[in-house]
Nucleic acid binder design. Structure first.
Lengths: 266, 266
DNA sequence: ACCTGAACACCGTTCAAGT
DNA sequence: ACCTGAACACCGTTCAAGT
């Protein structure tokens, strides 16, 4: 399947001679079809930077190797010297995006466990909703973490777990709680993002017919129709997310209370 | 963008003369490149059936118009007479898949609200986990419902809502509860499915390095490392799902209790 | 009214070669 | 050691035509 006879340069290694060679070939005339790129004038970082530029001005879906090559003004094949496949390029982009995400995610300290957890996942969601590229790379692809990604991720998770355990949750309950909240939050993000992406693709004639359009629906679906007037059908706005988050945290609080019959006073 | 000068036959309409024409052209020799298909020997249903056959023996990802044409032994272009685009074909498949799903989803009646809700979403998840095609079409695509789909969906939702409202939830609280549970369940399914799909695509050298591999991790992540030995990192097995479901239902129970200070006795 | 092959503009990837 | 264009096998979609 993946017989890669193509030599792939390890992403981290750098050519030291880059600058001198670049100086040699500066200001060449662009009369010909394309000026041959100077050796070392490109590296994995530059490709990655170009890929992010391209993707930010269009979308992750629109990323293709020919388009990226054109954007970078290199031959398509050149990219394959640095990244063995498009998948590998996307993996590298995802790793970078995850780092960017953790830079934006604040540390939460000195808060009660329930506020900590709510603030963490609200902020988690906010960042990805604000940046489609981050969302498409990190949330919509279940990435294979690099060792660095793993450490960042574990650091953040352990931070939340500490608060939960300090509040009285067992190690087991704390881990379960974290992942339940994580699945809920990522589920919310994925559903909203997919909804937007398919809406862009679809032709507008397939309009979603609302519950209110047919008067018979008021009798057939009394509860749903009652609510349909005041909320979106997809149920993924901020209030809906918060409501679910509150329910989850309330469940955790109740489970904690029944687990600790005698309240701690220290 | 979508200038469709191609005539698209409405999917529901049928040609009555189908059978007689098929009889005419039966048993033609297959000497030539391809025997020209008899008029009316194909319809939207047959294409849809063929598409499901193909997809069930491979995967939804592997569906392409040329492949489907070959499978049906027709020219590629023929499919476009019945479906304006691949997207439209997938929409029709999704609608059929959703019906199939509702046929398999049992009705839950005469149960306490918490058992009802748990049984509903456990069964919901079980069906999609058992059938990848259903999952890829219904869960991984946020489909634009047909009117029939909408009715089936609303029927099922209203069924759950009735139980919740009968138990004392307000209309508003019932709808919030339903969608929170739905987002959690679909999130769980999407994460697991994406995980499997990307694992198939990736080359095996990117093995997930576990927490246990590095002994230093025991000190750095005491809580996480303690749990890592006894559970999967992705946290999406049956026990994890049930645990989150219990937490959600416990949160709902607690919210209901504080909303109804005086317990009902009837 | 239905079905056809040839063709178009794209895609990811590889080859055999230039410097 | 790096960068190149040409080519391959695919894809979704359209054209101009057959019957």
């Amino acid at each position: 399947m993946c017989r890669s006879r193509v030599p792939i340069r390890a992403f981290g290694t750098r050519t030291q001679a880059t600058e001198t060679i670049m100086a040699q070939s500066a200001d060449q005339p662009k009369t010909e079809r394309r000026v041959r790129r100077a050796r070392g004038s490109l590296d994995g970082q530059a490709i990655l930077r170009g890929a992010f530029e391209l993707v930010e001005s269009t979308s992750v879906d629109a990323l293709s190797m020919p388009r990226l090559a054109k954007h970078l003004n290199v031959g398509v094949t050149t990219i394959y010297w640095y990244f063995g496949s498009k998948e590998e390029l996307l993996d590298a982009m995802t790793a970078a995006a995850l780092n960017r995400f953790y830079e934006r995610l604040p540390q939460f300290r000195g808060m009660p466990w329930n506020d900590h957890v709510k603030a963490f996942f609200r902020e988690f969601r906010r960042i990805f909703r604000e940046d489609d590229v981050l969302c498409d790379l990190v949330i919509m692809r279940v990435n294979h973490f690099t060792p660095e990604n793993l450490r960042s991720t574990w650091d953040r998770i352990e931070g939340v777990l500490e608060t939960l355990v300090a509040a009285g949750f067992s190690n087991d309950a704390a881990v379960e709680a974290y992942f339940t909240l994580s699945v809920y939050t990522r589920g919310n993000l994925m559903i909203e993002r997919l909804f937007i992406l398919t809406a862009e693709r679809a032709n507008p004639k397939n309009m979603q017919t609302g519950l209110q359009s047919n008067p018979g629906n008021r009798e057939r679906y009394p509860i749903l129709a009652d609510q349909a007037t005041r909320r979106s059908f997809s149920m993924i706005d901020d209030d809906d997310f918060d409501s679910g988050l509150d329910t989850l945290v309330e469940g955790l609080r109740s489970q904690l209370a029944s687990q600790l019959p005698a309240p701690q006073t220290d």
